[in-house]
C-alpha cells in the first residue's frame, strides 16, 4: 500500500471529524444535534459491507485457484469487517437509545447488521474447528460465499419490504434527498472513503503479519528436517 494513500485516508478522516463537528447541519426535530452521528456511525456500516465484499471476492478467487495467500486475505478482510460491524452496531445502539427510546428497537436494518455479524462469527468458529490448513481454507471459502448469498435478501430486500425507522424507509434503504442535503454529503462521503482506506490499511497489516508467521512456520519445519 502506497504511503500517499494512507496519508490521504488520514486527511479525509481529519476533515470529516472537523467538518462533522463544526459545519452547519439541518435542524430536524427528534434527532436534533445527534444528526452529526451520521458522519461517524454510517461509515462503520459502509466499511463493514466493503470489507465483507472484499473477503467474498478473495474467497471466490480462492475456490477458482487455491493458494494460501488468497485464504489469508479473505480471512483478514472478514476479521476487520467484523470489527467494523461490531462498532457499527454499538454506535447504532447508542444513537437509537437517544432517538428511538431503546437501544434495540427491532429495526430491520439493525437486525440485518446483527445477523451479518453472526455469520462472520460463525465463519471464525468454523475456521477454528478444522485442523487441516487446506481443508480449513476451502470449507471456510465455501461457507463465506454461501452465507453472503443467504444474507442478500436479509440486508437488501427485507428492509425495502418492511417499514424501517432508518431514513428512507420503504423503497430506498439509503438516504434520499430530504434526509441528507448536499451539505451533509460533502462530509459523509469523504468520511466513508477515509474509513475505507483506514480499514484497508489495517487489513494489509494483518495480511503481512499472517504471511510472515507462515514463513516462520515453514522455516521451523525445515529445521526439524
Amino acid at each position: 500500500m502506497k504511503t500517499w494513500i494512507k496519508i490521504l485516508g488520514v486527511l479525509l478522516l481529519f476533515y470529516a471529524h472537523i467538518a462533522g463537528l463544526l459545519m452547519e447541519v439541518p435542524r430536524l426535530n427528534i434527532v436534533n444535534e445527534t444528526i452529526r452521528a451520521t458522519y461517524f456511525h454510517v461509515p462503520m456500516w459502509f466499511g463493514m459491507v466493503f470489507l465483507f465484499l472484499m473477503s467474498l471476492y478473495y474467497s471466490i478467487l480462492y475456490l477458482r485457484k487455491p493458494s494460501l495467500e488468497l485464504d489469508i486475505k479473505a480471512e483478514s478482510f472478514a476479521h476487520a469487517g467484523l470489527a467494523f460491524g461490531i462498532l457499527g452496531i454499538l454506535t447504532g445502539m447508542i444513537w437509537a437509545n437517544y432517538t428511538w427510546g431503546s437501544p434495540w428497537h427491532g429495526d430491520p436494518k439493525q437486525n440485518g447488521a446483527a445477523i451479518a455479524t453472526l455469520v462472520y462469527l460463525a465463519y471464525f468458529v468454523l475456521r477454528g474447528s478444522i485442523d487441516n490448513m487446506e481443508q480449513k481454507a476451502r470449507l471456510s471459502a465455501v461457507y463465506n460465499i454461501f452465507a453472503f448469498a443467504a444474507m442478500i435478501p436479509l440486508i437488501f430486500i427485507i428492509p425495502r419490504l418492511t417499514d424501517s425507522l432508518h431514513p428512507g424507509n420503504g423503497g430506498n434503504p439509503g438516504f434520499n434527498m430530504y434526509d441528507l442535503d448536499s451539505r451533509m454529503r460533502l462530509v459523509l462521503y469523504p468520511a466513508i472513503m477515509g474509513w475505507f482506506i483506514i480499514g484497508y490499511w489495517m487489513v494489509s497489516l494483518r495480511i503481512k503479519l499472517s504471511k510472515q508467521l507462515d514463513i516462520l512456520l515453514d522455516l521451523e519445519d525445515e529445521k526439524l528436517k
Binding site: P26, R27, L28, N29, N32, E33, Y178, D181
Partner: peptide, 15 residues
C-alpha cells in the same frame, strides 16, 4: 424544496 422543508421543519428544533 430544500428551502421549504428546512424552513417548515422548524428552526425551533433544539440544537
Amino acid at each position: 424544496t430544500f428551502l421549504i422543508t428546512f424552513s417548515s421543519q422548524g428552526q425551533d428544533a433544539e440544537m
